[in-house]
Amino acid sequence: MSEAVAERNAGVVEGPIASPRELMPYAIFAGVVLMMLVYFVGAEEGALSLIGGSSVHELVHDARHLLGFPCH
């Protein structure tokens, strides 16, 4: 937690727990990695196909339909 945020909230019990500067690297890297996970469950072998063949698509196919992603 940055000092700036701590100072601003001194004396206040509820206040931000993370400054945007602290959040940014996580939002970028984790955001990209986690979006890739969503992609492999929900959209591989559709609009895009990153891994050749359709084995990833077939393995998680039921989850894709049941989680509401468009499919065949």
């Binding site: 979006m35 996970l37 969503v38 469950v41 894709r64």
Partner: peptide
């Protein structure tokens, strides 16, 4: 397959 799909989605 269903388990891998729901867990991957849950983690994400």
């Amino acid at each position: 397959g269903l388990l891998i799909g729901t867990v991957a989605m849950g983690v994400a």
